[in-house]
Design a protein around this nucleic acid. Structure first.
Lengths: 347, 347
DNA sequence: GTGAAAGCGCTAACAC
DNA sequence: GTGTTAGCGCTTTCAC
């Protein structure tokens, strides 16, 4: 006898009503059982919760949101994800948020679709908070959120208007740290392998690096023309620098992937041994950076802390008890590995 | 005069009622304007849509879902994402789904929290479909979905019960292809660097590889004890194989990351040049595999196709007009790069 | 401490 | 073609 598959949209799920009827109580009583601070007899609550667990009932947050005006949805906007740093942030963030019973609705900004369009769909779900993980996103988007009253948290990026919340690594300080490190090692001809030109991470790392060089009385570093945060871009930029008559002796790359690309170019196409002939520093400290074949000196982003702060902030905002918009900058720290060393006579 | 920040949960958003009142129509008429095949005068619809655009109004899908029983939410379950293949799949999937007006709710399975617990929250949002991207996830989870009538699509994994939909790379065929490739090159002592033991990707790749070796009359390949799909695991496994008296001349690794770890071990700790002394093949063809420093021969997963099929399937399922549960296996193809070569006298 | 009733924003019969 | 009504699953006054 063959089993007939019913084309049933969704098996009807159990609701408050069902529960109420089964227990011989009113729906409101049942509803109260799911609120910590509702007035309800402990025994009644216990009975309800027991039966609910048994039946696998859970209040529908969508219906609940309609009335409470809180969807418990957190929107996360992501753009390119070629940098492994971001997937990791995304999953950690998601994991921590869901432990707080906040659910993540993910949208990716597709270059083909307009950013506003993308945000519009997200906002139609009325998320309590929107987190922007995208390396670059026009402030128009954050305006869109503000317009409907949805708070925005920028992660490793900030809005020029300073009217949103932001949690970032102290990228400028990171740039300065690298400048100090390389200058301390005796390097004088420095160059910066740039990432996405309008990403604040890129801009700030450069700013700090450049400023610190000048402060230390070192010739201003060169900079490549920013492309993207990719292996290929790093490869190409290194090519540019190393083809010159007086190539730099050290490269600071806007992130680890760029650095790996740059190192490959240096080694393969210029036969330069690293760190003997060229020092290279990255940014992020992704897992790959510590692989023996790279063993890259880099600025470690305080990811765990950044994620925690973002989650805290998101929670406060979802409860509507956050402080004024503010930018939190968390310092990273230099992880010295084997791609940097003191300049010596052989150069 | 300082601006007073009102602690207002959410600025009241515009609703059908507002729109209806402003236009002097009934709410149902307004509602109809947003449905392609609703009966409504074209001019009326135009007026409504114009005003809506102006005001930034969009029907609230949550409220809509309450009545239509369709949330237009697609749940995606993700586990570890150390393999860059998955973030890419995730973003592509999300991008394509959102273009179809399906929104992605993301959950990550946290080892600390029970899988069921995680799924439970996801299901409480009543997603139309759940996609499981996690490399491994107990069939208990898919049962949980089935119990509430939510269709499940497995991506690159399948449920033993065969009662769900699945789109996977033909992993077994991939394994066979690699066996043929290596055997054709003259290799006879082969080994498999295993990934997560209970991941179907791992199992099937091994199965095909092993079976094909036997079919070709080659000594059964060795296999490492599966750990995880990580650089470190690849490094360790290679160590194991290469320390033996008669080490294998070729390694097939369950994925690219393992392969890269294995190659680093071979080169650094055993001074073996690849492919002269050891051939290595990976699986996935992630971006990194093509970087000059790796230039890894690997089985390319037909990601684009897999994503497309998954999206098609998801769309059908969300419309409730899909065929019977079935497993789609899409063949990948071998990408020959420079980590494999014919065995020669020097060995 | 509990129940009855109203209503969140929306769609789906059913009249007209 | 449009308006009226009911009701999705839930929370929240307000009585009791």
């Amino acid at each position: 006898m063959t089993e007939v598959v019913l084309k049933q949209p969704h098996t009807p799920r159990i609701t408050v009503k069902d529960l109420a009827r089964q227990l011989g109580m009113s729906v409101s009583t049942v509803s109260r059982a799911f609120y910590e601070d509702a007035v309800i007899a402990p025994k009644t609550r216990a009975r309800i919760l027991a039966r609910a667990a048994e039946l696998g009932y859970q209040p529908n947050p969508l219906a609940r949101g309609l009335i409470t005006k809180s969807s418990r949805i957190v929107g996360i906007v992501v753009s390119d994800i070629t940098n492994p740093f971001y997937p990791e942030v995304l999953t950690r963030l998601t994991g921590k948020l869901q432990a707080l019973d906040l659910n993540v609705m993910l949208v990716v900004t597709d270059p083909k679709r307009s950013e506003d369009e993308t945000l519009r769909v997200l906002l139609s779900y009325h998320p309590d908070v929107v987190i922007i993980l995208a390396t670059t996103l026009s402030s128009a988007s954050s305006d869109a959120c503000r317009k409907v009253g949805t708070p925005v948290v920028f992660f490793n990026r900030y809005d020029a208007s300073q009217r949103s919340y932001a949690v970032t690594c102290d990228n400028e300080l990171g740039g300065r740290t690298v400048a100090d490190h390389l200058i301390d090692l005796g390097h004088r001809r420095l160059a910066y392998v740039a990432g996405l030109p309008n990403a604040s991470t890129n801009v700030d790392r450069w700013k700090g690096f450049h400023a610190r060089c000048l402060e230390r009385g070192v010739q201003a570093p060169l900079s490549s023309v920013g492309q993207e945060f990719s292996y290929a871009a790093g490869y190409a930029a290194a090519h540019g620098f190393l083809s010159s008559d007086e190539p730099p002796t050290a490269l600071f790359c806007a992130n680890d992937i760029l650095a790996i690309g740059a190192m490959d170019a240096a080694r393969r196409d210029f036969g330069l041994s690293i760190p003997d002939r060229l020092s290279v520093v990255g940014f992020d400290d992704i897992a790959m950076a510590s692989w023996p074949s790279h063993d890259l000196t880099t600025v470690g982003q305080p990811m765990e802390l950044m994620v925690e702060r973002t989650v805290d902030l998101t929670l406060s905002l979802s409860r509507n008890d956050a402080s004024q918009p503010a930018l939190q900058r968390i310092p990273g720290k230099l992880v010295e590995r084997s791609t940097t060393r003191a300049i010596d006579g052989r150069q």
